[in-house]
């Protein structure tokens, strides 16, 4: 018995060494590119192009950020993205809650067919072109609404929300308030909403991050520079420029290129910093949301 546990003890030590090594390694692999991007954005263009930046900023300076912040399109993009994120998320929350509340009622007549009506759209969708034609015929193309209305509710999120309400608002509470003469609308505002605070937070974060990062819809439906969200400008600066600069690699352009390299890193930091700074504080809500979503209802 003693001998056996000794062997196991040794095995366990090896295991823990391997285990911590794996975790440390994976964490470093995630962390290093992020640190590199941030450090480069604070370094001087000459040193970056010479290849002197490995981990920490070299010749710390803010030249790149000065240029970025004086670039008009970044401000337009920021303003639009904030607008789309705030208004879009509010619409999302309103529609999702309106839908989830009645669907959480087991006594609702026609609940099964209505649920099928919603969830079928998760399995089958019309695809890009019919969607584009619809946006065109509704007159939504190249308006702000096209980023707000078509995605007003995610059926998946609605089901998550419905499951949450079902498990967190007890039936007894409904019965008691019905005896007190409370109708369904009052019950929603007085009882369901206050009890659903945590799921509302989760949904707001999911929807909000989605709006902040989305680029596809704007790319398809918007043509007007003043309506573009940040991600569209980012694509122009980060990805399209890549292809252009390879074509036009003349000497005059090379001089501008040095600073351009740093600019790219600055843009990445400026656009991603807000989410990454907030994230550690709201992390637990996000993870909670994943768990609520995994409960089948």
């Amino acid at each position: 018995m003693k001998k056996k546990s000794k062997i196991n003890y040794k095995q366990d030590r090896i295991y823990y060494i391997v285990c911590y090594t794996i975790i440390t390694l994976l964490t470093l692999i995630v962390l290093y590119p992020v640190i590199y991007v941030i450090s480069t954005s604070f370094s001087s263009a000459d040193r970056v192009v010479q290849g002197d930046v490995w981990l920490l900023p070299v010749d710390f300076n803010l030249q790149g950020y000065k240029i970025i912040l004086s670039y008009k399109n970044i401000w337009i993009g920021y303003r639009n993205t904030i607008f789309y994120t705030v208004v879009g998320t509010l619409i999302n929350l309103a529609v999702t809650l309106m839908c989830a509340y009645p669907m959480a009622r087991k006594t609702l007549r026609g609940r099964g067919p209505i649920m099928f009506f919603f969830s079928f759209t998760m399995l089958f969708s019309a695809g890009t072109i019919p969607y584009y034609i619809l946006m065109n015929s509704l007159g939504l193309l190249n308006t702000r609404w096209v980023l707000l209305l078509p995605g007003a509710m995610s059926v998946y999120n609605m089901i998550v929300c419905r499951t949450f309400i079902q498990t967190n608002v007890p039936d007894e509470m409904l019965e008691a308030s019905q005896i007190d003469g409370c109708n369904d609308i009052h019950f929603f505002f007085r009882m369901v909403l206050p009890l659903s605070k945590s799921i509302i937070a989760v949904l707001a974060l999911w929807y909000g991050v989605g709006h902040w990062n989305s680029y596809f819809d704007a790319f398809l439906y918007l043509r007007d520079n003043n309506l573009f969200p940040l991600q569209i400008f980012l694509r122009e600066l980060l990805i399209q420029s890549q292809q252009i600069s390879e074509v036009t690699e003349t000497l005059e352009e090379m001089q501008n290129m040095d600073i351009y390299v740093v600019l790219k890193y600055c843009i990445i930091v400026v656009s991603t910093a807000p989410l990454c700074c907030i994230y550690p504080f709201i992390q637990k809500y996000f993870q909670k949301g994943v768990l609520v979503g995994s409960v089948k209802g």
Binding site: I23, T27, V30, I239, K264, I268
Partner: peptide, 22 residues
Amino acid sequence: TQTIVTMPHFISTVVLVGILFS
């Protein structure tokens, strides 16, 4: 470690590809 490794989930596709290219 969990906070660090979950963070990249919130990087947008455009920025991810931008980082990759850079």
